[in-house]
Design a protein around this nucleic acid. Structure first.
Lengths: 167, 167
DNA sequence: CATCCAATGATATAAAATATCATTTGTCCA
DNA sequence: TGGACAAATGATATTTTATATCATTGGATG
């Protein structure tokens, strides 16, 4: 067996393995099969820790597994991972990220920085409740929620301020 | 001058003219110029009253003005109209609609039906406040908000139920 | 072992969006 | 008035994103 992991938050490699492991377990419990390709795609997402386009992912995964993958295969893997709640699509960027809270169903809320391109996933059950209430009032049955804010993250604002001063 | 309009809600033609008129006025007040092409695109959106793709719009507008328009021109007009708050993009569908509440800034919330493809725009200031509060707490400056629910609208649910019973 | 089904490979194509540069139109001011 | 400048559009090509199709592979199961 593998030696006990300490799971310090900063130890990216250890937590990557943890994330993959729990995704595999979660899929198994649902009778869904987590294949090597799907693992490779999910690993790419966790490793990048930023939104990746499908074609960018194709290149990364192709390198990581040592052979050329077709875009269609990446899209298929992404469809699967999104359906399983292990990944999510950021509609306003045509990009994908690993879901940071895959253990339970929820509406992901993304804060997407226009400067660095990073996307932070947060959760806010109240937002979900509010919009669902609106929908219910109108007789609309909600299947999927997209909540994305674009703007500038804290680090980029500081950076911009420094740049402005320095100029 | 044109004869006085009654602006009955059901009179689509009259309200279309009203919408275009007020968009022109709003643009003028901001020093933005509402050109014939932009009017044609906005008219197409109001007339269709459902989300239109850019290429679909190209065809509609080409017919309405009697000459072939390039896709790029449509995209430019749409960029302008979205910036002016006269139209909005539905990210999860790669489609555009006329904004139903162009008179004031707000985060559009869209309920997009997976069955009929229609998109209803609603407004909920509380949703806006909630997610903005989250953003603020994280030092994130919000520039744009995307809130889209996909699912099934009331009419389509009834239709589906009838179909199921009838079968 | 044979069979079946899900997943993937391989390829082609569709759909959506942008880039570039020439041309026209409009605005403003001398 | 007309000349100069900026904004908008035309025209074309290309990039990026996504899907369709059918052959092949690889397990699971009986």
């Amino acid at each position: 067996m593998t030696k006990k992991r300490t799971t310090k938050p900063k130890d990216v490699r250890a937590t990557l393995a943890d994330h993959i492991d729990s995704a595999i377990t979660a899929c198994r419990m649902r009778g869904a099969q987590m294949t090597p390709l799907r693992v490779a795609v999910l690993s790419a997402l966790w490793s990048a820790d930023r939104p990746l386009g499908a074609y960018e992912m194709r290149d990364l995964v192709s390198k990581s597994i040592g052979r050329k993958i077709a875009a269609a295969s990446v899209y298929r893997a992404l469809d699967f991972l999104c359906a399983q709640g292990a990944a999510a699509r950021i509609e306003s960027r045509n990009a994908y990220v690993a879901c940071k809270h895959p253990s339970h169903e929820h509406a992901c809320v993304f804060l997407v920085c226009e400067s660095c391109g990073d996307a932070k996933e947060i959760e806010n059950p109240k937002v979900e409740q509010l919009i669902d209430a609106d929908a219910k009032r109108l007789g609309f049955t909600v299947k999927h929620r997209v909540v994305e804010l674009s703007g500038f993250c804290a680090p980029c604002q500081k950076g911009a301020a420094l740049t402005a001063h320095g100029a």
